[in-house]
């Protein structure tokens, strides 16, 4: 519990987000292009961080489905910036022991003609300690 509270503080510090500013309009989720892929949606990230439900978020695949397009950050009328929160939670998740989402060994399998190399480099940078 104390560990989760510490992680919550860490997430808030990294992201600079104040979830209390949210007025629950759901515009972030309405604008999200990855909606169908995600288990938790931008407004739920904000709400769950506010109420302290960090653990399910840290384990959720949604962290890696977020495109980081920042549309939610751009559109939020209250300046809550949910996308930054997702980024911060992902950082906390990959920084844990064994939390790497991708290793150098995984890369050859991912390479194909369709996928731009830049995307793989970015993913490698984002999903790994």
């Amino acid at each position: 519990m104390a560990d989760m509270e510490r992680k919550r503080e860490q997430i808030l510090r990294i992201s600079g987000v104040n979830p209390r500013k949210c007025m629950r309009c759901g515009k972030c989720t309405a604008t999200c292009p990855s909606y169908d892929e995600m288990e938790y949606h931008p407004h739920e990230f904000v709400y769950m961080v506010e109420t302290g439900e960090i653990e399910p978020l840290l384990k959720s695949e949604s962290l890696y489905k977020c495109l980081s397009c920042m549309a939610c950050v751009e559109r939020c009328p209250r300046g809550v910036e949910p996308g930054k929160l997702v980024e911060a939670i992902r950082l906390v998740a990959v920084r844990e022991k064994g939390g790497d989402r991708i290793t150098a060994n995984d890369i050859p399998a991912l390479l194909d003609d369709e996928m731009p190399q830049q995307a793989i480099v970015t993913a490698f940078r984002k999903y790994q300690k």
Partner: peptide, 18 residues
């Protein structure tokens, strides 16, 4: 909920909302 975006497609307006 709120409307996230409206995109004109042909004669229609595609409304994406939550």
């Amino acid at each position: 909920g709120m409307v996230g975006k409206v995109s004109p497609e042909g004669k229609k307006l595609m409304v994406q909302a939550s």
